[in-house]
């Protein structure tokens, strides 16, 4: 069993599974967020449910955080191992001749997304935690829409969010399809998987960009 944990293939599968879990989470996150544009009342309702449902708060949320940690810790560990596998580098390495930029720079796009997560946690998660558990404020099922839109008022934050989503798209462009290959799925469904994952990699981040820009351009006027 210890052989399995140390094995290169098992580690790749851990990357793939945690990645797929985060991809799935992204779809759920997007579904809720898009309601902030089309139906603010629904957004408030769903956000309140996510914020106060015991299962979501105390079971799913820790699983999600664990998924993020596993994915980036393993990603960084693999990157270090891979770097060590070629101690002396080439003087000339023509990487673009045989592989896409996205596939060769998962660590860069990944670290940018990780840095974004830091800001995103500060913006929403830390705020929620202190609002609910530290300040001990009473439940207010109508606050979420306004809080969210206000977040996108500063230009700098909107820009950082948009750039991060572009990098996320590049990460997903290679990573989503790659996770299937890592788990051994390379068969007659390959082209269908490629198409689906690449469409997903564009559509979801583009949707998040749309939401950020929409709120920035339509601030709440008091």
């Amino acid at each position: 069993m210890s052989g399995l944990i140390k094995s290169s293939i098992a580690r790749k599968v851990v990357m793939a599974l945690s990645g797929l879990f985060l991809v799935f989470f992204l779809a759920q996150h997007f579904t809720i967020n898009i309601t902030s544009v089309i139906a603010p009342d629904t957004f408030n309702e769903w956000s309140h449910f996510m914020g106060y449902n015991g299962l979501v708060q105390f079971v799913l949320q820790p699983i999600l955080i664990a998924g993020v940690i596993v994915h980036f810790v393993m990603g960084i560990a693999l990157e270090i191992k891979n770097n060590n596998a070629r101690a002396i580098k080439y003087n000339k390495y023509n990487g673009s001749a045989n592989a896409s930029w996205m596939s060769r720079n998962m660590i860069i796009t990944g670290l940018v997304v990780l840095a974004f997560l830091g800001l995103h946690f500060y913006d929403f998660w830390v705020h929620e935690m202190s609002y609910k558990y530290i300040a001990g404020n009473p439940e207010d099922p109508t606050r979420y829409y306004e809080e969210t839109v206000e977040k996108f008022e500063p230009f700098w934050r909107t820009v950082i969010y948009v750039i991060s989503f572009v990098l996320l798209a590049l990460h997903l462009w290679h990573g989503f399809a790659s996770s299937f290959q890592s788990m051994g799925v390379n068969n007659k469904y390959k082209s269908a998987i490629q198409t689906f994952t690449k469409v997903y990699a564009i559509v979801i981040p583009l949707g998040f960009i749309f939401i950020a820009l929409y709120h920035h351009l339509n601030p709440i006027t008091h």
């Binding site: 693999l78 191992k81 891979n82 070629r86 045989n98 290959q181």
Partner: peptide
Amino acid sequence: GNCTNTGA
């Protein structure tokens, strides 16, 4: 090293 599925 490990495989990153770059396809190179």
